[in-house]
Amino acid sequence: MRKSLLFTFFVLAALFMTLPMEKAEAAPTLKVGSTVGDVWDLQFRLNILGYYQQKPDGVYGLRTSDAVRRFQTSYGLPPDGVTGPKTWRVLKRISVNQKELDIMAKIIHGEARGESYKGQVAVGAVVMNRVKSPLFPNNVTAVVFEPRAFTAVDDGQYWLTPNSTSYRAAIDAIRGWDPSGGALYYFNPDTATSAWIWSRPQLLKIGKHIFCS
């Protein structure tokens, strides 16, 4: 019986080794005339960043191509108006899709709805700074839901319905306004109990939050 099980194991292992490995899906290359679903995502991201002024329509026309070209110029990419893997890589690192925008607005509302507008943008900026930092996950969803990263997620305030101000603050943070001074952390000194967070180099204070590197 033991020999039979071992034989079966080695047969299955050998079969597994011969199966073709599934390759990661390559980023789609989009150009004038493309109408696939990824065009909607592209236009949404460019709109959030301020490069595409029209409402997304899913059609890669001359206006989309021009928006891509201006984005590429801003980030040192060949300005050919074609959205290939390199353009996608940069775009996804600094922008968000609709779901991620909603997450940004919720975390800002949950963490800082009683703060000034500048303070709300600063909280959003910390999220974006983490996305861009090698010390944290490289997308908004993973950053926000990293265990014990944000009090609002832990105590449920994240699930409150964000208002229009929270969305505006999220967009301003995504577009690069960073009142936090490049902070990766922040805390409320009146409620913080972690000795570790007090040890972080403090950059500035906005409202009730101290922002740290």
Results as ranks from 00 to 15, higher is better:
residue 42 L to V: 13
residue 209 H to L: 10
residue 211 F to C: 06
residue 76 G to C: 02
residue 24 A to N: 10
residue 210 I to F: 01
residue 1 M to L: 13
residue 89 R to N: 01
residue 104 M to E: 02
residue 90 V to H: 04
residue 57 D to H: 12
residue 164 S to P: 06
residue 78 P to E: 13
residue 149 A to W: 01
residue 57 D to R: 08
residue 111 E to M: 05
residue 144 V to H: 05
residue 193 T to R: 15
residue 96 V to L: 05
residue 15 L to D: 09
residue 129 N to L: 03
residue 93 R to M: 14
residue 207 G to R: 13
residue 137 P to V: 05
residue 9 F to K: 00
residue 121 V to K: 12
residue 185 Y to I: 13
residue 115 E to W: 00
residue 172 D to C: 08
residue 49 L to A: 10
residue 194 S to R: 12
residue 55 K to H: 13
residue 39 V to Y: 03
residue 98 Q to E: 11
residue 68 V to W: 01
residue 186 Y to T: 07
residue 157 Q to V: 00
residue 58 G to W: 09
residue 196 W to R: 11
residue 93 R to F: 14
residue 203 L to D: 00
residue 70 R to H: 07
residue 179 P to Q: 15
residue 112 A to V: 04
residue 129 N to G: 03
residue 104 M to C: 02
residue 102 D to A: 10
residue 67 A to S: 07
residue 173 A to Y: 02
residue 38 D to Y: 11
residue 101 L to F: 12
residue 150 F to G: 08
residue 134 P to G: 14
residue 157 Q to P: 01
residue 87 T to C: 06
residue 60 Y to D: 05
residue 9 F to L: 02
residue 81 G to Y: 04
residue 98 Q to T: 07
residue 84 G to N: 08
residue 196 W to E: 15
residue 159 W to L: 09
residue 154 D to A: 10
residue 26 A to P: 05
residue 26 A to Q: 15
residue 198 W to S: 13
residue 69 R to W: 06
residue 123 V to Y: 06
residue 197 I to K: 06
residue 150 F to P: 07
residue 207 G to T: 14
residue 212 C to E: 09
residue 49 L to I: 14
residue 55 K to M: 14
residue 171 I to L: 12
residue 48 I to A: 10
residue 136 F to V: 11
residue 105 A to H: 09
residue 95 S to T: 13
residue 37 G to A: 09
residue 68 V to F: 02
residue 98 Q to D: 07
residue 20 P to C: 03
residue 24 A to T: 10
residue 78 P to C: 05
residue 34 S to F: 01
residue 99 K to P: 02
residue 159 W to G: 08
residue 26 A to F: 06
residue 87 T to K: 04
residue 7 F to Q: 08
residue 38 D to M: 07
residue 78 P to A: 12
residue 4 S to T: 12
residue 153 V to A: 07
residue 166 S to L: 01
residue 57 D to A: 08
residue 134 P to F: 12
residue 41 D to F: 09
residue 154 D to S: 07
residue 2 R to E: 14
residue 115 E to Q: 02
residue 19 L to D: 00
residue 106 K to L: 05
residue 177 W to S: 14
residue 126 V to C: 06
residue 199 S to K: 10
residue 150 F to I: 12
residue 169 A to F: 06
residue 89 R to Q: 07
residue 208 K to R: 08
residue 180 S to E: 02
residue 73 T to G: 15
residue 82 V to C: 12
residue 72 Q to C: 10
residue 152 A to N: 01
residue 138 N to W: 00
residue 41 D to S: 11
residue 124 G to T: 13
residue 133 S to Q: 11
residue 79 P to H: 08
residue 136 F to W: 13
residue 69 R to A: 15
residue 106 K to P: 03
residue 177 W to F: 14
residue 200 R to Q: 15
residue 186 Y to E: 06
residue 51 Y to P: 03
residue 109 H to V: 07
